[in-house]
């Protein structure tokens, strides 16, 4: 029935114009609308009446939009999430960039290889910890306190990179440059960088985990 299909397309456009913009949500609502229409037609209603009744049952787009807007929470970019994603992405990307050529090098000694793999594993574990760390981290109820905690984690990461940079230039490099083995020096710098990234990933995981702990364990009405 082309006329009915036009009506459904028009309803979909009105919902989109009313603020339901996500295609997946519109698909789901349209699927519901069609099921309801079919049910009413089976019960004896004419298709146009069935369509009108189904539209009424779905409700107004502005009310739906307001309800969907309340979900926000998880995807809202709070400071904890920004710091967590920034630190985690940087650490993971750097580690995955360095690890393949460093850790597969046949000249790497076994202890060095183990140290390198341990650093990469710790980085990946920290980055993935958002899936469960919210269960174990404390719930900070105050949004301001959570923002402060996130900024502290971010600052701690920056401070750590400054400290690490100084260590690299003043301690690590001078010490290893006494060594004649050039390849060995590069290995030490590479492994040190992998461990530096692991710590950055841990700070990021704490920042993200604290926001998730508040979001998931405070309940939808108390989470601010």
């Amino acid at each position: 029935m082309p006329d009915l299909e036009r009506k459904i397309a028009g309803w979909r456009q009105r919902m989109a114009a009313g603020g339901i913009k996500t295609p997946a949500v519109l698909d789901e609502l349209e699927s519901h609308l069609r099921e309801e229409m079919e049910q009413q037609v089976r019960a004896g209603a004419n298709p146009v009446r069935a369509f009108e009744a189904a539209v009424r049952r779905i409700g107004r787009s502005d009310l739906l939009k307001a309800e969907f807007a309340k979900i926000g929470g998880r995807h809202e970019l709070r400071p904890g999430r920004v710091v967590g994603i920034a630190c985690g992405s940087f650490a993971v990307l750097f580690s995955l960039w360095v690890a393949p050529w460093l850790l597969t090098n046949p000249e790497l000694s076994l202890p060095q290889r183990i140290m390198g793999f341990a650093a990469v594993a710790l980085t990946l574990f920290s980055a993935a910890s958002w899936r469960f760390s919210f269960k174990y981290l404390p719930v900070i109820r105050s949004r301001r306190a959570r923002t402060m905690a996130a900024l502290l984690c971010g600052l701690a990461t920056l401070a750590w990179f400054c400290v690490f940079g100084n260590l690299l230039s003043s301690v690590i490099v001078p010490r290893i440059f006494q060594d004649e083995d050039v390849t060995g020096r590069i290995f030490v710098i590479g492994l040190s960088l992998l461990w530096a990234m692991a710590l950055a990933a841990i700070f990021g995981a704490i920042a993200y985990g604290l926001e998730e702990a508040a979001h998931r364990r405070m309940g939808k009405d108390n989470y601010v």
């Binding site: 949500v25 789901e28 609502l29 519901h32 309801e36 049952r57 779905i58 409700g59 009310l63 739906l64 309800e67 969907f68 309340k70 979900i71």
Partner: peptide, 10 residues
Amino acid sequence: TDGMLYPVLH
């Protein structure tokens, strides 16, 4: 109101 189920599910 049927549509209101979906924000809850999401």
